[in-house]
Design a protein around this nucleic acid. Sequence first.
DNA 1: ATATTTTTTTAGATTAGTCTAAAATTTATT
DNA 2: AATAAATTTTAGACTAATCTAAAAAAATAT
Lengths: 219, 219
Amino acid sequence: MISFTEENYLKIIYKLSAETDHEISTNSVAELTQTKAASVTDMLRKLSEKQLVSYQKYQGVRLTEKGENLALIVIRKHRLWEVFLVNKLGFNWDEVHEIAEELEHINSEELVQRLDEFLGFPQCDPHGDPIPDRNGRMPELGYKNLSEIGETQVVIMMGVSQHSTNFLQYLAKIGLNLGVIIEVIEINDFDKSLTIKIGGDNQYFISYEVAKNILVKTF
Amino acid sequence: MISFTEENYLKIIYKLSAETDHEISTNSVAELTQTKAASVTDMLRKLSEKQLVSYQKYQGVRLTEKGENLALIVIRKHRLWEVFLVNKLGFNWDEVHEIAEELEHINSEELVQRLDEFLGFPQCDPHGDPIPDRNGRMPELGYKNLSEIGETQVVIMMGVSQHSTNFLQYLAKIGLNLGVIIEVIEINDFDKSLTIKIGGDNQYFISYEVAKNILVKTF
DNA sequence: ATATTTTTTTAGATTAGTCTAAAATTTATT
DNA sequence: AATAAATTTTAGACTAATCTAAAAAAATAT
Ligand SMILES: [Mn+2]
Ligand SMILES: [Mn+2]
Ligand SMILES: [Mn+2]
Ligand SMILES: [Mn+2]
Protein backbone atom coordinates (compact mmCIF):
# COMPACT_ATOMS: atom_id res chain seq x y z
CA MET A 1 0.00 0.00 0.00
CA ILE A 2 0.93 3.61 -0.53
CA SER A 3 0.80 6.09 2.31
CA PHE A 4 -0.66 9.56 2.49
CA THR A 5 2.88 10.94 2.64
CA GLU A 6 4.11 8.98 -0.35
CA GLU A 7 1.15 10.19 -2.37
CA ASN A 8 2.06 13.78 -1.57
CA TYR A 9 5.61 13.26 -2.73
CA LEU A 10 4.44 11.72 -6.00
CA LYS A 11 2.04 14.57 -6.64
CA ILE A 12 4.76 17.13 -6.01
CA ILE A 13 7.29 15.37 -8.24
CA TYR A 14 4.60 15.24 -10.92
CA LYS A 15 3.95 18.95 -10.63
CA LEU A 16 7.66 19.80 -10.84
CA SER A 17 8.07 17.47 -13.82
CA ALA A 18 5.46 19.38 -15.77
CA GLU A 19 7.72 22.44 -15.78
CA THR A 20 10.87 20.78 -17.10
CA ASP A 21 12.13 17.67 -18.84
CA HIS A 22 15.19 17.36 -16.61
CA GLU A 23 15.30 15.19 -13.52
CA ILE A 24 13.84 16.89 -10.45
CA SER A 25 16.24 18.05 -7.73
CA THR A 26 16.07 16.98 -4.12
CA ASN A 27 15.93 20.58 -2.97
CA SER A 28 12.98 21.53 -5.14
CA VAL A 29 11.02 18.60 -3.75
CA ALA A 30 12.00 19.61 -0.22
CA GLU A 31 10.69 23.11 -0.82
CA LEU A 32 7.24 21.94 -1.92
CA THR A 33 6.87 19.19 0.67
CA GLN A 34 7.97 21.67 3.34
CA THR A 35 10.58 19.23 4.63
CA LYS A 36 14.37 19.14 4.63
CA ALA A 37 16.53 17.74 1.84
CA ALA A 38 17.69 14.91 4.10
CA SER A 39 14.11 13.73 4.53
CA VAL A 40 13.53 13.88 0.79
CA THR A 41 16.58 11.72 0.12
CA ASP A 42 15.18 9.06 2.45
CA MET A 43 11.80 9.15 0.78
CA LEU A 44 13.25 9.04 -2.73
CA ARG A 45 15.13 5.88 -1.86
CA LYS A 46 11.92 4.38 -0.56
CA LEU A 47 9.86 5.37 -3.60
CA SER A 48 12.62 4.03 -5.80
CA GLU A 49 12.47 0.65 -4.07
CA LYS A 50 8.75 0.61 -4.75
CA GLN A 51 9.49 1.38 -8.41
CA LEU A 52 7.46 4.56 -8.30
CA VAL A 53 10.40 6.81 -9.26
CA SER A 54 13.75 6.31 -10.95
CA TYR A 55 16.45 7.77 -8.80
CA GLN A 56 20.24 7.65 -8.75
CA LYS A 57 21.88 9.46 -5.93
CA TYR A 58 23.06 12.97 -6.81
CA GLN A 59 21.27 12.65 -10.18
CA GLY A 60 17.76 13.81 -9.26
CA VAL A 61 14.49 11.96 -9.62
CA ARG A 62 11.85 11.20 -12.25
CA LEU A 63 8.50 9.41 -11.99
CA THR A 64 8.17 5.95 -13.48
CA GLU A 65 5.02 5.17 -15.43
CA LYS A 66 3.62 3.48 -12.33
CA GLY A 67 4.47 6.54 -10.22
CA GLU A 68 2.96 8.91 -12.74
CA ASN A 69 -0.27 6.90 -12.82
CA LEU A 70 -0.56 7.09 -9.07
CA ALA A 71 0.15 10.81 -9.11
CA LEU A 72 -2.56 11.33 -11.70
CA ILE A 73 -5.08 9.40 -9.62
CA VAL A 74 -4.38 11.66 -6.66
CA ILE A 75 -4.66 14.77 -8.83
CA ARG A 76 -7.92 13.48 -10.30
CA LYS A 77 -9.33 13.06 -6.80
CA HIS A 78 -8.09 16.47 -5.67
CA ARG A 79 -9.73 18.24 -8.57
CA LEU A 80 -13.00 16.31 -8.45
CA TRP A 81 -13.36 17.11 -4.76
CA GLU A 82 -12.69 20.78 -5.51
CA VAL A 83 -15.51 20.73 -8.03
CA PHE A 84 -17.76 19.14 -5.43
CA LEU A 85 -16.89 21.73 -2.82
CA VAL A 86 -17.54 24.67 -5.15
CA ASN A 87 -20.45 23.41 -7.27
CA LYS A 88 -22.36 21.42 -4.68
CA LEU A 89 -21.45 22.91 -1.31
CA GLY A 90 -21.09 26.51 -2.44
CA PHE A 91 -17.53 27.20 -1.35
CA ASN A 92 -15.53 29.94 -3.06
CA TRP A 93 -12.66 28.82 -5.26
CA ASP A 94 -10.15 30.31 -2.85
CA GLU A 95 -11.41 28.19 0.06
CA VAL A 96 -11.18 24.67 -1.29
CA HIS A 97 -7.55 23.81 -1.82
CA GLU A 98 -6.69 22.88 1.76
CA ILE A 99 -9.75 20.68 2.19
CA ALA A 100 -9.08 18.94 -1.11
CA GLU A 101 -5.52 18.28 0.08
CA GLU A 102 -7.09 16.00 2.68
CA LEU A 103 -9.90 14.55 0.60
CA GLU A 104 -7.54 13.54 -2.22
CA HIS A 105 -6.18 10.72 -0.05
CA ILE A 106 -9.48 8.94 0.51
CA ASN A 107 -9.11 5.51 -0.91
CA SER A 108 -11.97 4.11 -2.97
CA GLU A 109 -12.13 3.78 -6.73
CA GLU A 110 -15.87 3.29 -6.54
CA LEU A 111 -16.22 6.56 -4.65
CA VAL A 112 -14.23 8.50 -7.23
CA GLN A 113 -16.22 7.08 -10.12
CA ARG A 114 -19.53 7.88 -8.48
CA LEU A 115 -18.38 11.34 -7.50
CA ASP A 116 -17.27 12.02 -11.08
CA GLU A 117 -20.69 10.94 -12.33
CA PHE A 118 -22.52 12.94 -9.65
CA LEU A 119 -20.63 16.05 -10.78
CA GLY A 120 -21.47 15.42 -14.44
CA PHE A 121 -17.97 14.33 -15.54
CA PRO A 122 -16.39 17.79 -15.33
CA GLN A 123 -13.43 18.51 -17.62
CA CYS A 124 -11.74 20.97 -15.29
CA ASP A 125 -11.70 22.04 -11.67
CA PRO A 126 -12.72 25.44 -10.27
CA HIS A 127 -9.26 26.82 -11.01
CA GLY A 128 -9.38 25.76 -14.66
CA ASP A 129 -7.06 22.79 -14.20
CA PRO A 130 -7.89 19.75 -16.32
CA ILE A 131 -9.19 16.65 -14.54
CA PRO A 132 -7.56 13.36 -15.60
CA ASP A 133 -10.03 10.63 -16.55
CA ARG A 134 -10.11 7.24 -14.76
CA ASN A 135 -7.19 6.09 -16.90
CA GLY A 136 -5.11 9.11 -15.99
CA ARG A 137 -5.52 10.86 -19.34
CA MET A 138 -5.54 14.65 -19.03
CA PRO A 139 -8.04 16.39 -21.31
CA GLU A 140 -6.26 18.88 -23.57
CA LEU A 141 -7.96 22.19 -22.89
CA GLY A 142 -5.62 24.37 -24.96
CA TYR A 143 -5.46 27.22 -22.48
CA LYS A 144 -2.57 29.69 -22.55
CA ASN A 145 -0.98 31.87 -19.92
CA LEU A 146 -2.02 35.50 -20.09
CA SER A 147 1.71 36.32 -20.26
CA GLU A 148 1.93 34.73 -23.72
CA ILE A 149 -0.80 36.88 -25.24
CA GLY A 150 0.19 39.74 -27.56
CA GLU A 151 -0.93 43.38 -27.44
CA THR A 152 -4.50 44.21 -28.61
CA GLN A 153 -5.59 40.56 -28.32
CA VAL A 154 -8.80 39.74 -26.50
CA VAL A 155 -9.17 36.54 -24.44
CA ILE A 156 -11.43 34.88 -21.85
CA MET A 157 -10.15 33.98 -18.41
CA MET A 158 -10.45 30.22 -17.84
CA GLY A 159 -8.37 29.55 -14.75
CA VAL A 160 -5.27 30.06 -12.67
CA SER A 161 -2.13 28.02 -12.21
CA GLN A 162 -1.50 29.13 -8.65
CA HIS A 163 -3.94 28.34 -5.84
CA SER A 164 -2.79 30.38 -2.87
CA THR A 165 -5.53 32.22 -1.03
CA ASN A 166 -3.50 35.44 -1.30
CA PHE A 167 -3.34 35.26 -5.05
CA LEU A 168 -6.98 34.30 -5.55
CA GLN A 169 -8.18 37.08 -3.30
CA TYR A 170 -6.06 39.62 -5.16
CA LEU A 171 -7.68 38.50 -8.40
CA ALA A 172 -11.15 38.80 -6.88
CA LYS A 173 -10.33 42.36 -5.77
CA ILE A 174 -9.46 43.61 -9.24
CA GLY A 175 -12.35 41.70 -10.81
CA LEU A 176 -10.40 38.90 -12.46
CA ASN A 177 -12.96 36.12 -12.18
CA LEU A 178 -13.52 33.05 -14.30
CA GLY A 179 -15.14 33.90 -17.59
CA VAL A 180 -14.26 37.62 -17.70
CA ILE A 181 -13.04 39.08 -20.98
CA ILE A 182 -9.53 40.46 -20.89
CA GLU A 183 -7.98 42.76 -23.48
CA VAL A 184 -4.21 43.20 -23.44
CA ILE A 185 -3.68 46.92 -23.93
CA GLU A 186 0.04 47.27 -23.56
CA ILE A 187 3.06 45.14 -22.64
CA ASN A 188 6.00 46.79 -20.97
CA ASP A 189 9.21 45.62 -22.70
CA PHE A 190 11.38 46.08 -19.67
CA ASP A 191 9.70 43.85 -17.07
CA LYS A 192 6.95 42.26 -19.20
CA SER A 193 4.29 43.76 -16.95
CA LEU A 194 1.04 44.54 -18.70
CA THR A 195 -1.90 46.89 -18.84
CA ILE A 196 -5.18 45.09 -19.38
CA LYS A 197 -8.83 46.00 -19.70
CA ILE A 198 -11.23 43.78 -17.75
CA GLY A 199 -14.73 43.19 -19.07
CA GLY A 200 -14.35 46.05 -21.54
CA ASP A 201 -14.29 48.41 -18.60
CA ASN A 202 -11.71 48.97 -15.90
CA GLN A 203 -8.09 49.23 -16.87
CA TYR A 204 -5.52 47.54 -14.62
CA PHE A 205 -1.79 47.22 -14.42
CA ILE A 206 -0.55 43.71 -13.52
CA SER A 207 2.91 42.18 -13.15
CA TYR A 208 4.37 39.48 -15.39
CA GLU A 209 4.33 37.21 -12.32
CA VAL A 210 0.55 37.56 -12.07
CA ALA A 211 -0.04 37.19 -15.82
CA LYS A 212 1.99 33.98 -15.88
CA ASN A 213 -0.49 32.40 -13.47
CA ILE A 214 -3.67 33.29 -15.33
CA LEU A 215 -5.06 30.80 -17.85
CA VAL A 216 -6.96 32.16 -20.82
CA LYS A 217 -8.67 30.94 -23.96
CA THR A 218 -8.23 32.79 -27.25
CA PHE A 219 -11.16 33.23 -29.60
CA MET B 1 -3.87 18.82 17.45
CA ILE B 2 -5.55 15.46 17.54
CA SER B 3 -4.47 12.67 15.22
CA PHE B 4 -6.45 10.29 13.08
CA THR B 5 -5.49 7.48 15.47
CA GLU B 6 -6.48 9.36 18.60
CA GLU B 7 -9.85 10.14 17.04
CA ASN B 8 -10.44 6.45 16.41
CA TYR B 9 -9.68 5.59 20.01
CA LEU B 10 -12.07 8.26 21.28
CA LYS B 11 -14.83 7.05 19.00
CA ILE B 12 -14.37 3.48 20.15
CA ILE B 13 -14.31 4.41 23.82
CA TYR B 14 -17.49 6.40 23.21
CA LYS B 15 -19.18 3.43 21.59
CA LEU B 16 -18.21 1.10 24.44
CA SER B 17 -19.37 3.64 27.01
CA ALA B 18 -22.86 3.67 25.53
CA GLU B 19 -23.29 0.02 26.53
CA THR B 20 -22.30 0.37 30.18
CA ASP B 21 -21.78 2.89 32.93
CA HIS B 22 -18.61 1.27 34.20
CA GLU B 23 -15.13 2.28 33.14
CA ILE B 24 -14.05 0.72 29.86
CA SER B 25 -11.43 -2.03 29.96
CA THR B 26 -8.14 -1.94 28.11
CA ASN B 27 -8.90 -5.26 26.43
CA SER B 28 -12.26 -4.20 25.06
CA VAL B 29 -10.65 -1.15 23.48
CA ALA B 30 -7.89 -3.34 22.03
CA GLU B 31 -10.46 -5.59 20.44
CA LEU B 32 -12.24 -2.77 18.62
CA THR B 33 -9.10 -0.90 17.58
CA GLN B 34 -7.64 -4.17 16.36
CA THR B 35 -4.46 -3.59 18.33
CA LYS B 36 -2.87 -5.22 21.37
CA ALA B 37 -3.56 -4.31 24.98
CA ALA B 38 -0.03 -2.95 25.37
CA SER B 39 -0.64 -0.42 22.59
CA VAL B 40 -3.91 0.63 24.16
CA THR B 41 -2.22 1.28 27.50
CA ASP B 42 0.25 3.61 25.79
CA MET B 43 -2.50 5.47 24.02
CA LEU B 44 -4.66 5.78 27.13
CA ARG B 45 -1.78 7.43 28.94
CA LYS B 46 -1.40 9.86 26.07
CA LEU B 47 -5.12 10.67 25.87
CA SER B 48 -5.13 11.13 29.61
CA GLU B 49 -2.31 13.68 29.42
CA LYS B 50 -4.37 15.55 26.83
CA GLN B 51 -7.34 15.46 29.26
CA LEU B 52 -9.48 13.61 26.76
CA VAL B 53 -10.04 10.62 29.05
CA SER B 54 -9.79 9.97 32.76
CA TYR B 55 -7.62 6.98 33.35
CA GLN B 56 -5.95 5.37 36.36
CA LYS B 57 -3.84 2.36 35.63
CA TYR B 58 -5.62 -0.96 36.11
CA GLN B 59 -8.89 0.95 36.68
CA GLY B 60 -10.10 1.31 33.11
CA VAL B 61 -10.93 4.44 31.18
CA ARG B 62 -13.77 6.93 30.74
CA LEU B 63 -14.16 9.91 28.40
CA THR B 64 -13.93 13.39 29.85
CA GLU B 65 -16.44 15.96 28.61
CA LYS B 66 -13.81 17.26 26.22
CA GLY B 67 -13.13 13.74 24.95
CA GLU B 68 -16.82 13.02 24.52
CA ASN B 69 -17.32 16.19 22.52
CA LEU B 70 -14.53 15.24 20.17
CA ALA B 71 -15.91 11.72 19.80
CA LEU B 72 -19.33 13.14 18.95
CA ILE B 73 -17.85 15.39 16.30
CA VAL B 74 -16.21 12.39 14.64
CA ILE B 75 -19.43 10.39 14.83
CA ARG B 76 -21.35 13.31 13.37
CA LYS B 77 -18.96 13.42 10.43
CA HIS B 78 -19.07 9.66 9.95
CA ARG B 79 -22.85 9.60 9.78
CA LEU B 80 -23.23 12.68 7.60
CA TRP B 81 -20.79 11.22 5.07
CA GLU B 82 -22.73 7.96 5.10
CA VAL B 83 -25.88 9.89 4.24
CA PHE B 84 -24.01 11.61 1.43
CA LEU B 85 -22.73 8.34 0.04
CA VAL B 86 -26.15 6.70 0.06
CA ASN B 87 -28.47 9.60 -0.78
CA LYS B 88 -26.30 11.51 -3.22
CA LEU B 89 -23.90 8.99 -4.71
CA GLY B 90 -26.27 6.03 -4.72
CA PHE B 91 -24.24 3.56 -2.67
CA ASN B 92 -26.02 0.76 -0.82
CA TRP B 93 -26.09 1.01 2.96
CA ASP B 94 -23.82 -2.01 3.25
CA GLU B 95 -21.06 -0.36 1.19
CA VAL B 96 -20.47 2.90 3.00
CA HIS B 97 -19.04 2.14 6.42
CA GLU B 98 -15.41 1.66 5.35
CA ILE B 99 -15.35 4.81 3.23
CA ALA B 100 -16.94 6.84 6.02
CA GLU B 101 -14.24 5.52 8.36
CA GLU B 102 -11.79 7.54 6.27
CA LEU B 103 -13.95 10.57 5.53
CA GLU B 104 -14.79 11.08 9.21
CA HIS B 105 -11.25 12.36 9.81
CA ILE B 106 -11.37 15.22 7.33
CA ASN B 107 -10.82 18.37 9.28
CA SER B 108 -13.01 21.35 8.48
CA GLU B 109 -15.93 22.64 10.49
CA GLU B 110 -17.09 24.68 7.54
CA LEU B 111 -17.17 21.56 5.40
CA VAL B 112 -19.28 19.64 7.91
CA GLN B 113 -21.77 22.48 8.25
CA ARG B 114 -22.18 22.85 4.52
CA LEU B 115 -22.47 19.10 4.04
CA ASP B 116 -25.17 18.94 6.71
CA GLU B 117 -27.08 21.69 4.94
CA PHE B 118 -26.57 20.10 1.51
CA LEU B 119 -28.08 16.88 2.86
CA GLY B 120 -31.05 18.71 4.36
CA PHE B 121 -30.01 18.37 8.01
CA PRO B 122 -30.75 14.65 8.28
CA GLN B 123 -31.69 13.28 11.72
CA CYS B 124 -30.23 9.84 11.17
CA ASP B 125 -27.80 7.98 8.93
CA PRO B 126 -28.63 5.17 6.49
CA HIS B 127 -28.41 2.63 9.33
CA GLY B 128 -30.90 4.51 11.48
CA ASP B 129 -28.26 5.92 13.84
CA PRO B 130 -28.96 9.44 15.12
CA ILE B 131 -26.67 12.22 13.87
CA PRO B 132 -25.39 14.59 16.58
CA ASP B 133 -25.95 18.28 15.84
CA ARG B 134 -23.06 20.77 15.65
CA ASN B 135 -23.05 20.99 19.44
CA GLY B 136 -22.82 17.25 19.83
CA ARG B 137 -26.42 16.77 20.90
CA MET B 138 -27.90 13.44 19.77
CA PRO B 139 -31.50 13.63 18.57
CA GLU B 140 -33.73 11.28 20.59
CA LEU B 141 -35.32 9.03 18.02
CA GLY B 142 -36.99 6.62 20.45
CA TYR B 143 -36.22 3.49 18.49
CA LYS B 144 -36.24 0.10 20.20
CA ASN B 145 -34.46 -3.15 19.49
CA LEU B 146 -36.63 -5.76 17.83
CA SER B 147 -35.61 -8.09 20.68
CA GLU B 148 -37.60 -5.95 23.15
CA ILE B 149 -40.87 -6.21 21.24
CA GLY B 150 -43.60 -8.52 22.54
CA GLU B 151 -45.57 -11.17 20.65
CA THR B 152 -48.29 -9.99 18.22
CA GLN B 153 -46.89 -6.44 18.14
CA VAL B 154 -46.33 -4.74 14.77
CA VAL B 155 -43.43 -2.32 14.19
CA ILE B 156 -41.53 -0.55 11.42
CA MET B 157 -37.88 -1.21 10.81
CA MET B 158 -35.85 2.00 11.24
CA GLY B 159 -32.24 0.86 11.36
CA VAL B 160 -29.55 -1.48 12.58
CA SER B 161 -27.02 -1.27 15.37
CA GLN B 162 -24.41 -3.39 13.63
CA HIS B 163 -22.82 -2.33 10.37
CA SER B 164 -20.86 -5.34 9.15
CA THR B 165 -21.31 -6.14 5.49
CA ASN B 166 -22.14 -9.73 6.41
CA PHE B 167 -24.99 -8.73 8.63
CA LEU B 168 -26.43 -6.15 6.24
CA GLN B 169 -26.35 -8.57 3.34
CA TYR B 170 -28.10 -11.21 5.41
CA LEU B 171 -30.86 -8.72 6.16
CA ALA B 172 -31.16 -7.82 2.49
CA LYS B 173 -31.50 -11.50 1.61
CA ILE B 174 -34.50 -12.09 3.87
CA GLY B 175 -36.07 -8.77 2.91
CA LEU B 176 -35.38 -6.84 6.10
CA ASN B 177 -34.95 -3.37 4.63
CA LEU B 178 -35.49 0.05 6.12
CA GLY B 179 -39.17 0.88 6.38
CA VAL B 180 -40.55 -2.66 6.19
CA ILE B 181 -43.34 -3.65 8.56
CA ILE B 182 -42.51 -6.43 10.97
CA GLU B 183 -44.95 -8.47 13.01
CA VAL B 184 -43.62 -10.54 15.89
CA ILE B 185 -45.44 -13.86 15.62
CA GLU B 186 -43.81 -15.90 18.31
CA ILE B 187 -40.93 -15.68 20.77
CA ASN B 188 -39.14 -18.85 21.78
CA ASP B 189 -38.72 -18.83 25.57
CA PHE B 190 -35.64 -20.96 25.56
CA ASP B 191 -33.22 -18.94 23.35
CA LYS B 192 -35.32 -15.81 22.73
CA SER B 193 -35.24 -16.46 19.00
CA LEU B 194 -38.33 -15.23 17.16
CA THR B 195 -40.63 -15.91 14.28
CA ILE B 196 -41.61 -12.75 12.42
CA LYS B 197 -43.71 -11.81 9.43
CA ILE B 198 -42.12 -9.30 7.05
CA GLY B 199 -44.32 -6.90 5.10
CA GLY B 200 -47.42 -8.90 6.03
CA ASP B 201 -46.08 -11.69 3.86
CA ASN B 202 -43.15 -14.02 4.31
CA GLN B 203 -42.57 -15.64 7.66
CA TYR B 204 -39.00 -15.90 8.93
CA PHE B 205 -37.18 -17.31 11.88
CA ILE B 206 -34.41 -15.11 13.29
CA SER B 207 -32.05 -15.44 16.25
CA TYR B 208 -32.03 -13.21 19.33
CA GLU B 209 -28.59 -12.01 18.21
CA VAL B 210 -30.07 -10.67 14.99
CA ALA B 211 -33.16 -9.17 16.64
CA LYS B 212 -30.96 -7.31 19.11
CA ASN B 213 -29.33 -5.45 16.22
CA ILE B 214 -32.50 -4.32 14.48
CA LEU B 215 -33.95 -0.92 15.38
CA VAL B 216 -37.70 -0.50 15.14
CA LYS B 217 -40.35 2.12 15.79
CA THR B 218 -43.64 1.17 17.46
CA PHE B 219 -46.92 2.67 16.28
C1' DA C 1 43.05 23.60 -12.55
C1' DT C 2 42.04 24.92 -7.94
C1' DA C 3 39.34 26.70 -4.68
C1' DT C 4 34.87 28.01 -3.09
C1' DT C 5 30.06 27.49 -2.81
C1' DT C 6 25.97 24.88 -3.24
C1' DT C 7 23.61 20.68 -3.26
C1' DT C 8 22.96 16.18 -1.75
C1' DT C 9 23.71 12.33 1.10
C1' DT C 10 24.91 9.96 5.40
C1' DA C 11 24.93 9.40 10.37
C1' DG C 12 22.60 9.55 14.34
C1' DA C 13 18.41 11.11 16.96
C1' DT C 14 13.36 11.86 17.74
C1' DT C 15 8.25 11.08 17.81
C1' DA C 16 3.95 8.40 16.91
C1' DG C 17 2.12 4.14 16.83
C1' DT C 18 2.70 -0.41 17.05
C1' DC C 19 4.51 -5.14 18.61
C1' DT C 20 6.23 -9.33 21.83
C1' DA C 21 7.56 -11.06 26.09
C1' DA C 22 7.90 -10.53 30.88
C1' DA C 23 6.35 -8.49 35.21
C1' DA C 24 2.72 -6.62 38.07
C1' DT C 25 -1.92 -6.34 39.50
C1' DT C 26 -6.62 -7.66 39.83
C1' DT C 27 -10.21 -11.11 39.68
C1' DA C 28 -11.91 -15.66 40.20
C1' DT C 29 -11.62 -20.26 42.23
C1' DT C 30 -10.86 -23.40 45.37
C1' DA D 1 -7.19 -16.78 52.63
C1' DA D 2 -4.28 -18.85 49.36
C1' DT D 3 -3.71 -20.08 44.74
C1' DA D 4 -4.66 -19.92 39.93
C1' DA D 5 -6.19 -17.42 36.00
C1' DA D 6 -7.01 -13.37 33.56
C1' DT D 7 -6.00 -8.68 32.71
C1' DT D 8 -3.07 -4.89 32.43
C1' DT D 9 1.22 -2.60 32.45
C1' DT D 10 6.21 -2.20 31.65
C1' DA D 11 10.43 -2.99 29.10
C1' DG D 12 12.51 -3.08 25.00
C1' DA D 13 12.27 -3.18 20.01
C1' DC D 14 10.52 -1.88 15.29
C1' DT D 15 8.84 1.13 11.26
C1' DA D 16 7.57 5.52 9.08
C1' DA D 17 8.59 10.09 8.73
C1' DT D 18 10.97 13.59 10.22
C1' DC D 19 15.10 16.50 12.03
C1' DT D 20 20.24 18.49 12.71
C1' DA D 21 24.97 18.31 11.86
C1' DA D 22 28.71 16.50 9.34
C1' DA D 23 30.62 14.41 5.17
C1' DA D 24 30.65 13.81 0.24
C1' DA D 25 29.82 15.17 -4.38
C1' DA D 26 28.73 18.45 -7.95
C1' DA D 27 28.57 22.99 -9.73
C1' DT D 28 30.60 27.51 -10.01
C1' DA D 29 34.03 30.93 -9.84
C1' DT D 30 38.55 32.38 -9.82
MN1 LIG E 1 -6.06 22.59 -5.08
MN1 LIG F 1 -7.48 23.19 -8.27
MN1 LIG G 1 -20.52 3.31 9.66
MN1 LIG H 1 -23.89 4.25 10.16
